[in-house]
């Protein structure tokens, strides 16, 4: 079975086998600066390259993004293209030290420049548009789920209503209408910034410049070159998050690696 971050799966789930919004982790967060990205590494020759910057410091975990995406895209019950994974982290057992903290991580398709999902698609249903958005043609998709296995971000799932692969489209139908993706429009903390990475004057580019050295992406070692960037992304959350799934399906914790709340 694929080892899965219990908080990260974007999926359709029944209440029985469920996304776990809160996971318990047991390490202190690193505060030392790490090698980080500057601006997008490749600027496409296309007119636009759509990208998102998530300022985690501003996320309040209200799931407005999750639900607005669900409503906007008329998703079937329990299917979410984006969500905020919430982690409770054990920090210190020293008296007087903060014992635990909350870490929030909005997740969605990373619309990679080198998408792992595209090359494995046997029908060409999954492809990357000129403007950088990775999409699935639901007429061509046969639901083989290779792309779901290939995606290092757990961003894809089978939509039970269509039996085809489903994922975030950056609300391409809204972008084409001159609007913002639903999740961005309604982000209460103002954490999600969406824009054109080709436009030097866009707020996205300005923020990427302003926070140069602090910008990170998820799973950098996978060399997928994502177009979703983060401020405040701790290195421990860049890869698979190893923790103990805590809510709603503790019996399924076998799949995740325990880092030991038991006996603590």
């Amino acid at each position: 079975m694929k080892k899965t971050d219990p908080g990260a799966m974007l999926t359709c789930s029944s209440r029985r086998t469920f996304i776990r919004e809160l996971s318990v982790l047991t390490f202190a967060l690193a505060t030392a600066p790490l090698p980080a990205l500057g601006a997008p590494s490749t600027i496409s020759s296309a007119k636009n390259t759509w990208a998102m910057l998530v300022d985690i410091r501003r996320c309040i975990g209200c799931q407005a993004c999750t639900i607005s995406c669900f409503q906007e895209n008329a998703m079937p019950e329990g299917c979410f293209r984006t969500l905020v994974a919430a982690y409770s982290i054990r920090l210190s057992e020293q008296p007087g030290m903060q014992p635990a903290g909350t870490y929030l991580l909005p997740r969605l398709c990373n619309h990679c420049d080198k998408p792992a999902c595209v090359s494995v698609c046997p029908t060409g249903a999954t492809f990357k548009r000129e403007d950088g958005i990775v999409v699935v043609n639901n007429r061509r998709c046969v639901g083989c789920a290779y792309c779901i296995q290939a995606c290092p971000y757990d961003a894809r799932f089978i939509n039970p209503a269509t039996n085809t692969t489903d994922k975030c489209t950056f609300c391409v139908h809204r972008i084409q209408a001159g609007l913002l993706p639903a999740c961005v429009e309604t982000c209460v903390g103002g954490a999600r910034i969406f824009g054109d990475a080709n436009d030097q004057n866009s707020q996205l580019r300005q923020k990427l410049r302003q926070y140069q050295g602090q910008i990170r992406v998820l799973q950098p070692q996978m060399n997928t070159t994502p177009n979703v960037y983060y401020i405040g992304l701790d290195e421990r959350f860049q890869g698979k998050v190893e923790g103990m799934p805590a809510l709603w399906s503790p019996q399924r914790s076998e799949g995740a690696s325990h880092t030991g709340m038991k006996g603590a």
């Binding site: 209200c62 799931q63 407005a64 999750t66 639900i67 607005s68 669900f70 409503q71 972008i175 001159g178 609007l179 913002l180 961005v184 429009e185 309604t186 982000c187 209460v188 103002g190 910034i193 969406f194 824009g195 866009s202 707020q203």
Partner: peptide
């Protein structure tokens, strides 16, 4: 998205409000 107005001008509903 016009001139990025919708970012700073964002008007939101929360998860519950949605």
């Amino acid at each position: 998205r016009f001139q990025d107005m919708g970012l700073d001008g964002r008007a939101t509903a929360c998860g519950r409000g949605n």
